[in-house]
């Protein structure tokens, strides 16, 4: 086996809101090229963990490295898809404009997206099957279409690591399949995917790695090794089968 690179390494990470820890001493190594789900009950700190990886939330202890360097030096290697519900979809803008925001990071100050960026945005919209909606105001899109636009925005960043916060939340079945297919394609291209995921039933079907999280890290590793009753119980409590419904 060739030696694997570590895409994201989290060491002794503790995050607290008002001195109440929401993540407690997390150690995590995410190998390059895996498609990893982060699962855990509500309030387990899943979103906080990825926000800490992205340097959006400042930890009170510990640190995160992306391909061996601090995040702020590796921004261009990482694309982030926030929760759909975290933005105001009544914002006066169109689908393609949202996708273009994915190019802002590489553009630098003052510069506006040009022809090259527009072309990339159109290609990304095409990939998520949203090209015909490119000029539509974003509030006029369905939940699934909005999520596709978000995904297109991440695609346009052309990153090595894709970090997503519940990309399947509130989307229809067709969109879910379409998104999974795109994610699998990304993985085939050697990209690393880290996805906060809610639906335990689809974890083995969609992903090949999993991290169980409940304020502390319960377990992390390949699905086939660690996706079992023992870890599910440790994460969700004895009644996890009831809890996940």
């Amino acid at each position: 086996m060739k030696e694997e690179r570590i895409a994201i390494q989290v060491d002794d990470l503790t995050v607290a809101y008002n001195y109440k820890p929401v993540l407690w001493d997390i150690d995590l190594k995410i190998p390059e090229g895996v498609m990893m789900a982060i699962v855990g009950p509500n309030g387990a700190g899943k979103s906080t963990l990825i926000k800490a990886m992205l340097d959006i939330v400042k930890p009170i202890a510990g640190n995160v490295q992306v391909f061996g360097k601090p995040y702020h030096k590796q921004r261009k290697l990482v694309a982030y898809v926030p929760q759909k519900g975290s933005v105001d979809w009544d914002f006066p803008t169109t689908a393609i404009d949202v996708v273009l925001m994915g190019t802002y990071g590489t553009l630098g100050w003052i510069k506006r997206p040009g022809l090259k960026e527009k072309k990339a945005a159109l290609e990304a919209l095409e990939k998520v099957d949203m090209l015909s909606f490119k000029d539509r105001q974003i509030s006029q899109l369905s939940g699934g279409q909005q999520q596709r636009v978000f995904l297109a925005r991440a695609l346009v960043q052309n990153a090595s690591i894709y970090i997503m916060d519940e990309p399947f939340q509130g989307v229809d079945a067709t969109t879910e399949i379409a998104i999974v297919n795109i994610l699998k394609e990304l993985r085939k291209d050697g990209k690393t995917l880290v996805v906060v995921h809610h639906d335990l039933q689809t974890v083995p079907e969609y992903f090949d790695w999993v991290t169980f999280l409940n304020v502390e890290k319960i377990a992390t590793g390949p699905i086939k090794d660690i996706f079992n009753d023992d870890n599910l119980t440790k994460t969700y409590g004895i009644n996890y089968k009831v809890a996940i419904r």
């Binding site: 340097d55 959006i56 921004r75 982030y80 926030p82 975290s86 803008t93 949202v98 802002y104 990071g105």
Partner: peptide, 18 residues
């Protein structure tokens, strides 16, 4: 563009260094 993205999606903005 910075005002736009920080207004619409502060999470994305922070992740791309704005």
């Amino acid at each position: 563009k910075e005002l736009k993205v920080t207004t619409f999606d502060p999470g994305l903005a922070a992740s791309i260094g704005i």
